[in-house]
Design a protein around this nucleic acid. Structure first.
Lengths: 213, 213
DNA sequence: TTCAGTTCGTTACTTTTTTCACAAAGTTCG
DNA sequence: CGAACTTTGTGAAAAAAGTAACGAACTGAA
C-alpha cells in the first residue's frame, strides 16, 4: 500500500462495505467474496478489491474475505474505534430530528451540545441535550475542543453560524443549509442539500428518464 | 450540443448554479461571468462554462451571462417549470422534519401524502398532510400516479417499503435509510445517509486531517 | 472606428477513477 | 497428492471528469 493518496470516492464506499460486513457478521456469515460484496452494494467486484487494496491485504485467494477480520480492519481504518464530539447549530425540525436520530450515537458520533437563537428553545432539553444560546457557541466549542459541527439553520443564517464556528476553531462542518459556505480552505465542509437530492430525481424524470445506471 | 450524455456530476452542479443566479437576480444583478460564478461556488471558471455548454450557449463573449436568462434556462433544464408529487413513507422525526421543510415546496416538490405503520399517527395531520396507513401506500401511489417517494423509515423496514413502492409503479426513490435497496434497474435511487456524511468528516480528522481541497 | 481588454465556447490535454484481465495463491474433493 | 475451481491483488487499459488554452466574439473608451 505504501503512502498512496486515497480517493474520496473510495472513502465513501468504505462505509458501505463496513455496513454490509457488519450485517453479514450479525448473521454469523464467516466469509464473503469481493463479488458477493459487490452484488450487495451495487458495485463491481474489481471496485471492491481495488478499494480495499489501498489499505492492505485482507483477503484469502480462493475463499474471499473473513467477515469479522474485514469488519475490524474497516472499523480501524474509518476511525470507528474512537468517539467524536459534535456540536449542533440550529434546533428546528431538522435539528430535532438529528438529535433524535440514533444512527449518530451508534456510529460513534455524540452530539454533545446544541445551540439556537430562539429564546423559547434555550434552556430546553431535547433528547437529553440541553439547548444553549447561540451566543455561547463560540466559547463552548473552544472550551470543549469540539472538532465538528452540524449546521441546521435556515439558509440566511448559515454563513453567520459558519463564521462563528470557524472562529471557535472547528475542524469540519456538516452543512444542511442550501448555501455555499465561505470558509478557510483548511476546514472540511460536507454539504447535504435535502431538496436538491429530490430535485436531481425530478431532473431524471423530466429528461426523458431513459437509461441510467 | 447534439445528443451528448450529461455527467451526473454536471447535473448536481446545475442546481448549485441555479441557486446562485437566483440569489444574484434577487439583488438585481444583471450579468455574471463564469469566473464570478465559479468563485461563488468554489468551482473553476472552465468547469462552469463546460457544464453550461452541455445544454447550449447562454453567454455573451465579453460580458458574461445574463442572470435572468441563465436562471430561466437552468430552471427549464432542471425541470423546475413543473411541479412534482412526492409520497413520504415514514413519519418519524425525520419524516416530520421533511414535511415541515419549506425547501421542497419552494423547489416545486409537493409531498402530497404520507404513510406510516404506527396506528397512533395514522389519521393525524402533519403540516397539512394527512398520515395514511402503510397498507394504503400501494393503492395511493398507483391511483395518483405519484412518480417519486421518500423513504424515511428505520433501516429494517426500508426494503419492505421499497418493494411496495416498486410494485406501485414508482419511478424514483430518495432513500434516507442506511441500507442498499434492492430494486429493479429502471428505478432511480438516491441515497442520503445522514450519519455517513458525518463519519466521512471523522475519517478525515482521524487520518491526519492534512491537505484536502 | 479602432484598439485594448473581457469573456465565451470548444477542443486538446491531464488527471482521476473505473474496469479489465491474469498470474499467483488458496480451496475442495476424489 | 493432484486436478479443477475460486478468488485475490495488481498492473495495464479504458473511460470519465476536470483543467488549460486559445480563437472568436463582444464591450467600452478614445
Amino acid at each position: 500500500m505504501a503512502t498512496k493518496r486515497i480517493p474520496e470516492t473510495t472513502v465513501k464506499r468504505l462505509f458501505i462495505y463496513l455496513r454490509e460486513v457488519t450485517e453479514l457478521s450479525e448473521f454469523n456469515i464467516r466469509t464473503v467474496s469481493s463479488s458477493e460484496l459487490g452484488e450487495r452494494t451495487n458495485l463491481s467486484d474489481a471496485q471492491v478489491r481495488k478499494d480495499l487494496g489501498y489499505f492492505g491485504q485482507f483477503g484469502v485467494s480462493g475463499s474471499g474475505y473473513n467477515v469479522l477480520e474485514l469488519k475490524k480492519a474497516l472499523e480501524r481504518i474509518v476511525g470507528k474505534d474512537k468517539r467524536w464530539k459534535v456540536a449542533l447549530v440550529g434546533v428546528g425540525h431538522l435539528g430535532e430530528a438529528l438529535l433524535s436520530y440514533s444512527g449518530f450515537t451508534e456510529q460513534g458520533l455524540d452530539i454533545v451540545s446544541a445551540f439556537d437563537v430562539s429564546e423559547d428553545l434555550v434552556g430546553a432539553s431535547v433528547k437529553g441535550v440541553k439547548v444553549e444560546s447561540f451566543a455561547k457557541l463560540r466559547e463552548a466549542v473552544k472550551e470543549n475542543g469540539i472538532p465538528m459541527a452540524i449546521i441546521a439553520v435556515p439558509a440566511g443564517e448559515a454563513q453567520k453560524a459558519a463564521d462563528v464556528l470557524v472562529d471557535s476553531g472547528i475542524k469540519c462542518i456538516l452543512n444542511f443549509a442550501p448555501v455555499n459556505l465561505d470558509v478557510p480552505g483548511k476546514i472540511k465542509v460536507n454539504n447535504v442539500d435535502l431538496s436538491r437530492e429530490l430535485e436531481i430525481l425530478a431532473y431524471f424524470l423530466a429528461s426523458g428518464n431513459g437509461g441510467w445506471r
